[in-house]
Simulated assay, not measured.
Amino acid sequence: MQPYQYFMYPFSLLYDGITRLRNRMFDTGVKKSIVFEIPTIVVGNLAIGGTGKTPMVEFFVENFKGSHELACLSRGYGRKTQGFILAGSGATADELGDEPFQIFSKYGHEITVAVGEQRILAIPQIIAENPATELVVLDDAFQHRYVKGDMNVLLTTFQKPFFEDHVLPMGTLRESREGAKRADVVVVTKSPKELEERTKQEYIAKIRPYVKKHCPVLFAGLNYGEPYNVRSHEKADVQKVVLVSGIANNKLLKEWVEAKYELLEVLEYSDHHHYNEKDLRFMLERMEAYRDENPTLLTTEKDAVKLNANKFLPYLQEIPIFAVPVQVKFEEKDRDTLLDMASKVIRNKAYQSEV
């Protein structure tokens, strides 16, 4: 712990007290949680910042879109709009937020994508727009307790697990570690490849005091795919890279790029950054500086959906921008455990609706 964090302790106590009171009100029924007739899977975390929620949401989309009429609902953090919006043709990242727009860009022809701060109101609107909806996956809704999820998936990173973290502002937790009791399954994301069983057991032992008795603890890494051109979706021979990232933590991304390519420079922006023409001009300048190296401008899919905007077309014609797809990667046993849990929730809910 850094010395300055101790000065934040009184403020953390206050924040912790407020969030504990709020949770207590839900636990005792003073505040009401609604259970919907259709199954809901909640993906979330205790901490602010990137724990891999979007890849996890896409994991559920990939595995259930072919068998169920699926909807993905997000708050739409960072968008320039408010209220409920059902994504349709002509939707933009500014309208939906970067992560929901990323999901819509990839899966919008197969699933329903919507955003809305008040999920308790947004779910009925989704059903009204598409009465055939059979499953709703809620992105970043672990603290949105007005909706009682049928399956709560809690994510925590291997690099900064919640059991070593503290409540804001002393740490990055949105609520106390005890909030993990609401989880039906914990997934330790961004785990290293070939993680030793001893290390897994150490993490499980430290997580166990905070979760329900039979709550599974699973491990997942990230799998980076081959970069593709954001305009043409064609792949190319990438060798030397100028990396652009506007994500919460780009450490693993940089390590992957350095291992696979020659990394010339990193242009770092804040999480959910709204790119403007000044940013694109700067990117063009940096690419010009490395002209003799024949560089590729590489970025995340999350950033790519914002950079691939019509207003930036003049720059995109001069800078070929390539996006790196990323997927959550489970060992087969953990993957099967998570999918079996989700399938059971869906079957049970379908049975209840028939009775």
Rank of each mutant, 00 (worst) to 15 (best):
Leu21Arg: 07
Glu226Ile: 15
Val324Met: 13
Lys235Ala: 03
Asp98Phe: 03
Glu194Ser: 08
Leu138Arg: 10
Arg75Ser: 05
Thr51Ile: 00
Phe162Ile: 08
Ala342Ser: 12
Arg291Ala: 15
Glu268Pro: 02
Asn152Glu: 06
Leu155Gln: 10
Arg208His: 11
Gly225Gln: 03
Phe312Pro: 12
Val328Glu: 02
Arg208Cys: 05
Asp94Arg: 12
Val113Gly: 01
Lys65Ile: 02
Ser105Gly: 08
Leu154Thr: 13
Glu318Ala: 15
Phe104Ser: 02
Val61Phe: 03
Ala183Pro: 13
Asn130Asp: 14
Asp292Gln: 13
Glu288Leu: 01
Asn250Pro: 14
Ala180His: 11
Leu252Arg: 12
Ser33Asn: 05
Asn308Asp: 14
Glu175Tyr: 02
Ala236Arg: 11
Tyr9Phe: 15
Arg75Cys: 02
Gly225Cys: 03
Glu258Ile: 01
Ile123Ala: 08
Ala342Thr: 15
Gln125Tyr: 04
Asp98Leu: 04
Ala309His: 15
Met56Lys: 10
Thr40Glu: 09
Glu202Val: 03
Ile207Thr: 02
Thr112Arg: 01
Phe312Ala: 14
Glu255Tyr: 03
Val328Asp: 05
Thr40Phe: 09
Ser245Leu: 07
His274Met: 04
Ala342Glu: 13
Glu202Gln: 04
Tyr4Ile: 10
Leu264Lys: 06
Phe64Ala: 11
Pro325Lys: 12
Glu58Pro: 14
Ser12Tyr: 10
Asp27Gly: 00
Lys31Gly: 00
His274Pro: 06
Lys160Leu: 00
Asp271Thr: 08
Phe64Gln: 06
Lys240Thr: 09
Tyr261Lys: 07
Arg286His: 15
Val113Ser: 03
Tyr261Pro: 08
